[in-house]
């Protein structure tokens, strides 16, 4: 009897674990390429709200889920700034969003975002996703995680999901520039040839329930 009980407990634990793993893997509630971009209105580091709809007159936007503390995000900071400088004037500005739980990572708290935005002179909005609902709506898993959205007559559509390029450690050694290529294709009226890429990154720090 005791053995049976133990076995049941083990099975229960494993099933719970596996379903948690399955949830982590599935793009649960997340968007795919071609889907409508979830709308948002989030607090910027300047204390004002910024909404996706503020950019409806642009051609689209480069939405980057990123944060202060993650070494991968830090390595990409200058490249994210460069993307904004290259593409904002052509209608694709960067919108950075930090979804991390500041309880887990104090460096990612709102006041620290203000400090970082000033230090790096971010030329783009750096928004706090306090409830983490926007990251969930997009299906963002890691930082940095990029969503290029294009404004069409049917609204904002997701055109690219993934990484910025193929070399996080060394920008000068990168050979494929996924976001840049995707936006360049959209500007030419084409769909990105590589609409989805994977990359290593820091897991988004979800709030503990």
């Amino acid at each position: 009897m005791n053995r049976v009980f133990q076995w049941c407990v083990t099975v229960l634990i494993v099933v719970t674990t596996l379903s948690a793993i399955a949830r982590a893997n599935g793009n649960e509630g997340g968007v795919n390429v071609g889907d409508s971009a979830p709308v948002f209105s989030l607090m910027n580091v300047d204390g004002k709200k910024v909404a996706l709809s503020d950019f409806s007159s642009a051609k689209g936007a480069i939405i980057v889920f990123t944060c202060n503390h993650c070494p991968y995000s830090v390595k990409y900071e200058d490249r994210i700034i460069a993307l904004h400088q290259q593409f904002a004037s052509q209608g694709y500005p960067v919108i950075a969003i930090n979804p991390n739980d500041p309880v887990t990572v104090p460096e990612d708290a709102y006041d620290q975002m203000i400090v970082r935005a000033k230090e790096k002179k971010f030329p783009f909005p750096y928004l706090v996703d306090e409830t983490q609902e926007i990251a969930k709506a997009y299906g963002a898993k890691r930082t940095p995680h990029v969503y290029v959205v294009a404004n069409t007559k049917d609204g904002s559509k997701v055109a690219y999901i993934g990484s910025i390029d193929d070399n996080a450690a060394d920008a000068s050694a990168a050979e494929s520039f996924f976001v840049s290529d995707a936006v360049t294709a959209l500007l030419a009226g084409k769909l990105p040839t590589t609409p989805l890429t994977k990359a290593i990154g820091c897991t988004i720090k979800w709030k503990k329930k």
Binding site: E175, S176, A199
Partner: peptide, 9 residues
């Protein structure tokens, strides 16, 4: 292993 997009899968 460079180029994570090629080996993660």
């Amino acid at each position: 292993e460079p180029k994570p997009h090629l080996w993660i899968d």
